[in-house]
Design a protein around this nucleic acid. Structure first.
Length: 690
DNA sequence: ACATGGGCGTGAG
DNA sequence: CAGACCTCACGCCCATGT
């Protein structure tokens, strides 16, 4: 079902707006496709769930942000489509050869000699909670809070309640829902019980999280002369006996497939895929791509809407396009998926590359209050982070501050230091500098991350169990401590084999659209910048005087520092918090007029036919920018040195502004149109000339 | 050409 | 009583510096 356009139109035009509002929990792997037999999704009225989710979300800041992101992805898709359409048959046949060759090479790496088993505990946290409080049995229950759920039992899932869904929406879906707070000490305890069982089958098993693990059962099968089916059954029985919990298992020739398999007969079931090429290919042929680990909502969307790929098999059929459009590693990943390949070795320990801690809090309008709060929270986070680092003996020299504004825009700011740090004092000291530089902002989250570790730290590898939904719940210090404790508590043995969840772990960054090999005209990375409401783009500032406004922002920053110091004092500052958006709004209207000529019926782009509702002010501006840039590029390449039009000046103004406002990133959107020079180079040139 | 730094998006639970 | 949509890790891209 494809409704890329009407999505954001007002509800009068679109009778079912909720159908296009996808969230991770309405579009999760388990929910994604038809086969409703399993995953507790039987009888879930998906339409109703989506409607409720939509109704509960509609109009919120969060929702608006989701819409922005959605729109951005749609643009990206549009762009990639256009690019594919432009491929000449010559280019395509070239990439067909590239793809064919690569497929052969990948095929040659196929290893069917090993058996991997993936175990996944059923609704783990919920199951543990039920164990310790049997009265919960049979009742819909979720582990988590009103703002976020990390696990729901199967009774609750029947109502559409899922992990990563906010609690208040879950309650709407299921008014009877019982909420139970997280308790990691318990989960860790039970996790250890299960791991003791895993050890018997593979002493080097890879723990993927508290409730998931990969076991290489090749040896046990051989030694005991029994099949993967039997091992899986025995293991599940044993886990139940030891921990009183049910789990699901998948057995396959590699980890990627094993993980897919464990999902098939969940809960309390198993699925075994024989080590046979035909069996694998058949399995893969109809498998929806979304079932593959590493392919999420966005990638699915792109592969489907740009290439028409729905099943893994189709990755191979569209191999040439994939190779033409994506980077080497990404294309390789996709092709491997199409072949049903995955890693089969037990990787040597992988080391953590970053460690971080973040926290969400309620948005405070009052500046003085906000700043006091920030002080407090920053200090807390620094301490948690430092504690975690010290626990793992880590020291790092890059500190990144993460902020989420009241409008859900995410920013990160980093410094790289001369020396390695790990103390909370050091962290806080540098974090404060970063934070202050951003200050007139209304925030809902701050986070700190440390990277660039001191290498020779050949310490125990990271504990993958940390990457859970869950930690945040007890989000303060408590949870962190407990999570940390998993390390010590948690099986010392397996701690040294780190999981790499992504299996082939092929870097699949969909955002990249690089093709490799010699640069052909296919290559343009461009996507309009739709993301940042705050800065730049919507200011297709049409008047020269706007330039002065650009100069204002540094002053504001200066102001903020002052404000910062006189925290207690009353503030005119609250407005300034919105300074970013205020000018935008103004500009929005003025530029609207300017753009109107391009929008037929105020809806459809007269140049390329892309449809976009009038409410998408910023997106539309970006879009018209795109055409403008295109035109400019043509002119430039034709060495047409004519005088800039009014509109063009505006764009330049905006670019300057953007650049100076460290908004450089998405300008790439306009780069690399075919063999033309990058547009920002172009602007640079122009700017020098004028 | 290559290394490094910074910013962002993606996926997972 | 209303409001409440997370946390963590990774890898890619661009820009900049050498």
């Amino acid at each position: 079902m494809e409704r890329s356009d009407g999505e954001c139109a007002s509800s009068s035009e679109n009778p079912r707006p909720w159908q296009s509002y996808h969230t991770v929990y309405t579009n999760a792997k388990a929910v994604a496709n038809e086969t409703p037999r399993f995953e507790g999704m039987d009888g879930v009225d998906k339409e109703k769930v989506q409607k409720v989710v939509y109704e509960m979300s509609k109009g919120s800041k969060y929702f608006e942000n989701e819409e922005r992101k959605e729109a951005f992805i749609r643009q990206k898709i549009e762009h990639m489509r256009a690019r594919c359409a432009k491929l000449t048959s010559l280019v395509i046949s070239h990439y067909q050869k590239v793809a064919d060759k690569r497929i052969l090479e990948l095929e040659a790496t196929r290893d069917l000699s090993r058996s991997w088993l993936h175990v996944d505990m059923d609704a783990f946290y919920a199951a543990v909670e039920t164990l310790s409080n049997p009265s919960l049995k049979g009742k819909p229950m979720a582990v988590g809070t009103m703002s976020m759920i990390c696990t729901a039992n199967y009774e609750a899932r029947r109502f559409g309640v899922r992990a990563a869904m906010p609690g208040f929406i879950a309650r709407k879906l299921c008014p009877e829902l019982i909420f139970v707070p997280t308790n990691f000490t318990k989960y860790t305890y039970y996790s250890d019980l299960t791991r003791k069982v895993f050890c018997k089958y593979d002493p080097n098993f890879m723990a993927a999280s508290l409730d998931e693990a990969y076991l290489d059962i090749t040896e046990v099968c051989r030694e005991r002369g029994i099949s993967g089916i039997e091992i899986a059954e025995e293991l599940r029985t044993s886990v139940y006996e030891e921990a009183g919990l049910t789990c699901s298992a998948g057995v396959a020739p590699n980890r990627l497939l094993a993980k897919v398999c464990s999902d098939i007969n969940k809960p309390n079931g198993q699925f075994v895929l024989p080590n046979d090429r035909m069996a694998v290919m058949t399995f893969i042929s109809s498998l929806p791509i979304r079932k593959i680990g590493g392919i999420g909502k966005v990638t699915e969307h792109i592969l489907r809407d740009v290439f028409g790929i729905n099943t893994c098999e189709e990755m191979l059929q569209k191999g040439s396009l994939l190779c033409a459009v994506f980077s080497h590693s990404t294309a390789d990943f996709f092709l491997s998926v199409g072949l049903g390949l995955g890693s089969t070795n037990t990787p040597q320990a992988r080391f953590r590359k970053s460690i971080s801690s973040e926290r969400t809090f309620s948005v405070t309008e009052d500046k003085a209050l906000l700043y006091r709060k920030l002080d407090h929270i920053a200090a807390e986070i620094a301490e948690m982070l430092s504690a975690d680092m010290q626990k793992e003996g880590l020291r790092g020299r890059t500190l990144t501050l993460k902020l989420k504004t009241a409008s859900f825009e995410v920013r990160t700011r980093a410094v790289t230091l001369q020396k390695y740090i790990s103390s909370s004092e050091d962290i806080l000291k540098h974090a404060s500098v970063l934070l202050k530089a951003e200050l007139p902002v209304s925030l809902r989250l701050i986070g700190l991350r440390v990277t660039q570790f001191n290498e020779d730290k050949v310490r125990a590898p990271s504990d993958p169990t940390q990457k859970t939904l869950t930690n945040f719940m007890t989000s303060g210090h408590a949870s962190k401590k407990i999570v940390g404790d998993q390390n010590s508590l948690g099986s010392d043995i397996n701690d040294d084999c780190l999981i790499d969840d992504k299996e082939t772990s092929v870097s699949l960054d969909v955002s990249e659209t690089n093709n490799y090999e010699f640069g052909d005209p296919v290559c343009d990375n461009s996507l309009p910048d739709l993301n940042d409401e705050n800065c730049s783009f919507s200011n297709k500032i049409s008047e020269v005087e706007k330039i002065h406004e650009n100069e204002v922002s540094p002053l504001l920053e200066g102001n903020s520092l002052v404000l910062r110091q006189e925290e207690g004092s009353c503030c005119d500052g609250v407005e300034e918090v919105d300074k970013d958006t205020t000018p935008d709004n103004k500009v929005g209207t003025s530029s609207n007029q300017k753009d109107q000529f391009i929008w037929l019926d105020d809806y459809k782009c007269s140049l390329c036919g892309t449809e976009m509702p009038p409410s998408f002010i910023e997106e539309r501006q970006e879009h018209s920018d795109f055409h403008l840039a295109e035109r400019l590029q043509k002119e430039e390449s034709g060495s047409d040195l004519r005088i800039l039009t009014h509109m063009e000046r505006c764009v330049r103004t905006q670019r300057d502004h953007s650049a100076s406002h460290r908004k450089r990133k998405k300008q790439k959107l306009f780069e690399k149109e075919g063999t033309h020079i990058p547009i920002d180079m172009f602007f640079a040139k122009r700017n020098r000339n004028f």
